[in-house]
Simulated scan of single mutants.
Amino acid sequence: MWGLKTEPALERTDLTASAVAARLAGWAPAERVLAAPIDPELADTAECAAAYDIPLEASANCVVIAAKRAGQVRMAACMVLATTRADVNGAARRHLGARKASFAPQGEVVAATGMEYGGITPVGLPEGWPILVDQAVLEAGHVVVGSGLRSSKLVLPGADLAELPGAEAISGLGVRTD
């Protein structure tokens, strides 16, 4: 697909972080998920899209946020297309009922997920984390997302992200950047 050499992810768990492989093993849509090796230096969305001829409209970013209310911090993931940015302090904060929301510290995200920065994916996030998925991601057809590693990507139908535990579709979560 595009310029990626894809294979069934269930057969190539070496191309995923261990938490991702564990989620795929117990997830009904996993049979539709493909994995592809990439140059880890090209893991960031724009560079990956350019190098592998992936339209930005088919690239989805997973942003982890820390939502705070009454002294409690709750982590959540936001899935938005690469042509948008996550409305962290608007749509995400309101949906989570938080007083304040911000991007979660990189070190905390890596430690909590067991995934590499630049490869964070909603597939295999810790139990109990809400996964807010912009409606545009669900309607995008196949999308490229992280695999938990910088050295590979997953390709799957965007609509399948709604089937992840804790996933919720949010209209307007992604705000156009142009």
Rank of each mutant, 00 (worst) to 15 (best):
M1S: 15
W2R: 06
W2H: 06
T6V: 13
P8Y: 11
A9L: 02
R12T: 12
T13I: 13
S18T: 15
V20K: 11
A21D: 02
A22E: 10
A30C: 08
A30P: 05
R32C: 03
R32F: 03
I38W: 00
P40R: 08
P40I: 03
T45S: 13
E47N: 12
E47C: 05
I54G: 02
L56P: 04
A58R: 15
S59R: 14
N61W: 03
R69S: 13
R69Y: 09
A70W: 09
G71R: 06
C78W: 04
M79I: 00
L81S: 00
A82F: 05
T83K: 14
D87Q: 04
N89L: 04
G90K: 04
G90P: 02
R94P: 02
R94I: 00
R94Y: 01
L96A: 00
K100V: 07
A101S: 09
A104Q: 02
Q106K: 15
V110S: 05
A112F: 01
G124T: 00
L125Q: 15
E127G: 13
A136F: 08
A136M: 05
G141P: 10
L149C: 05
R150L: 02
S152N: 14
S152L: 11
V155S: 01
P157D: 00
G158K: 12
D160H: 13
D160T: 08
L164W: 07
E168M: 10
I170R: 05
